[in-house]
Amino acid sequence: MRINPRITNRLVRWGLVAQAYCTVTVLVLIIGIIFFKGFPQVNFAFIFSFPQDMGRHGGIFPAIVGTIQLALLSILLATPLGVGTAIFLTEYTRESTFTKLIRFGVESLAGIPSILYGLFGFIFFVIKLKMGWSLLAGVLTLTIMILPTIIRTSEEAVRAVPRQLRIVSYSLSASKWETIKKVVLPAAMPGILTGIMLSIGRAVGETAAIIFTMGSSLRLPLSLMESGRTMAVHFYILAREGISMEKAYGTAVVLVLSILFVNIIAYYIMNKAIARYS
């Protein structure tokens, strides 16, 4: 028996709508559960005090500071490298074997799972370069890990700057670098910032690559050579070792909120840029 195509059409439509809503429901559930269970744990003391008894009591202050240190330092290193690479690829060369090779490198880096970054950072920075479990080893590993994201978003942003703007700048007696510095980079800035924001989000949420390079010391890292703990690592240890469900939920709220916050800023910048160019 052949089913009437119009009935199929309607059935499919409802099926798709149902699945789409299902997906949204999952998202709302995930965030809802975290917030519902976690918010009661979060207060001034939780954020600004040190953990006690492995995190069973007290707050998560060192983890917050560790997260900020790690994210900011990695961004500080990865941004010039990434934006520089993007500028080189778009402004200084035509498509060639060399650019293809670099693109291959970037794509490959982007595809490597974080545990392999952890493995590499562990053997190279921690062991061979004798950094030990330290903020520095974590920062360097994470820098390499977020580099592809920054390169790709920056390249897209730089490419989107109209060619005419460059021509005008040259006609006004600007050199190549002056044109890039004064015209191309400012125009591409929203796109570049979006990439940076997304990378911060990734840095804040990362665990596997961090735990084997930065370690998981509960003390506040006061120098680059000291070990420390990010919120994600702290959360993982609280949850996995069953130290305290309440504190785990509390940490999760702060963690998810900071990532949401960073993502929303990225979205805001992107939409503003899109509005400006269209």
Binding site: L165, S169, P186
Partner: peptide, 9 residues
């Protein structure tokens, strides 16, 4: 001066 006015942003 070009055909289409292109002010810098």
């Amino acid at each position: 001066v070009f055909a289409v006015p292109i002010p810098l942003p």
